[in-house]
Design a protein around this nucleic acid. Structure first.
Length: 294
DNA sequence: ATCCAGGATCTCG
DNA sequence: CGAGATCCTGGA
């Protein structure tokens, strides 16, 4: 993919970018550490850096950064090497996906840090986005490193496995994590003691990667698929949360279909693009409240 | 006050 | 095995 890049002050601007809409990117359930500013821009913290991203007309404006960080971090983070026109073209052969894509046309799958995503999606179990965000921010504030202030808000790095492994279950519970606290502590322990190399899983085939992730307590099929999709470039993963279940049952299957069956159906139907299909469907279902009872 | 949203895990048949 | 109960917590 080639882009027209402009560098000015602390900004990098991509002119006439397609398939890029911060709202679609951040509000489709894949990331939690973002903050919407008054001007509609999104401030995010990832890989120890603070970035503000805003769509201005047809341009994407990356603020509080420089060309080096853009090239080494954000280009990959925002999946800018990938051709979303191709993905959309293929998925649009399905009439339902065609509609869903129109809705979230600017969605991209982010490439996030494996450790942070492991903890984030353990936190997501039986939880809702507003509280997940709150818990992860608290955890970072208390146990991460202060990075800096941006537009009046303070930002902290995500705590390392080593720093979480020093805590008690009670410490972690104080971040509003409830029954998930013990899972987070176990994960920190496993990763800190290198019983599992979380960064090696990405290099495994999807099925092996899934098996390895399921070893972590608090990680089940849905969470494992989220981790693979959002931090390990496993685009064939098809995480099924309540929203995807609803939208799949509503359009493709019937009510009360077993999760395993929906999973197989999705993998079969969308193949290597299942993860992208899942994201478009999730955003579509949530924005429209599709299949929600009452 | 009581109910509800949310996946993993535990328990029971 | 599969079905159903249980776990936390903030917001209505």
């Amino acid at each position: 993919m080639s882009y027209e890049l402009i560098e000015q002050n602390d900004k990098i601007i991509i002119k006439d970018i397609k398939n890029f809409e911060p709202k679609h990117i951040f509000e489709c359930g894949q990331a939690f550490r973002w903050h919407v500013e008054d001007d509609g821009s999104y401030t995010i913290v990832a890989y120890g850096k603070i970035l503000n991203i805003k769509k201005e007309g047809n341009d994407a404006v990356f603020s509080n950064t420089n060309k080096e960080d853009f090239k080494s971090i954000w280009y990959y983070y925002f999946d800018l090497h990938r051709d979303y026109d191709e993905i959309k073209k293929e998925l649009s052969k399905d009439p339902i996906l065609e509609k869903a894509i129109k809705f979230g046309e600017g969605m991209r799958i982010l490439n996030q840090d494996e450790w942070e995503i492991l903890i984030s999606f353990i936190t997501s179990a039986n939880n809702m986005i507003s509280r997940i965000k709150k818990s992860l921010n608290l955890l970072s504030e208390k146990y991460g490193e202060f990075i800096g202030e941006y537009r009046g808000n303070k930002y902290y790095s995500f705590p390392t496995a080593n720093s979480l492994n020093k805590l008690s279950v009670e410490d972690i519970k104080e971040c509003g994590l409830g029954f998930r606290a013990k899972y987070i502590l176990s994960a920190a322990n496993i990763v800190d003691r290198r019983e599992m190399d979380i960064y090696a899983i990405k290099n495994m085939p999807t099925d092996d990667a899934r098996k390895n992730l399921l070893i972590f307590p608090g990680v089940g099929p849905k969470v494992a698929d989220c981790i693979m999709l959002f931090s390990m470039e496993k685009s064939d993963a098809f995480p099924i949360d309540v929203w995807v279940k609803r939208v799949m049952e509503y359009f493709y299957l019937e009510e009360d279909t077993k999760l395993k069956l929906i999973q197989e159906y999705g993998q079969e139907k969308f193949g290597e693009l299942a993860g992208f299909a899942q994201q478009y469907l999730f955003y579509y279902a949530r924005e429209l409240g599709i299949g929600k009872k009452k």
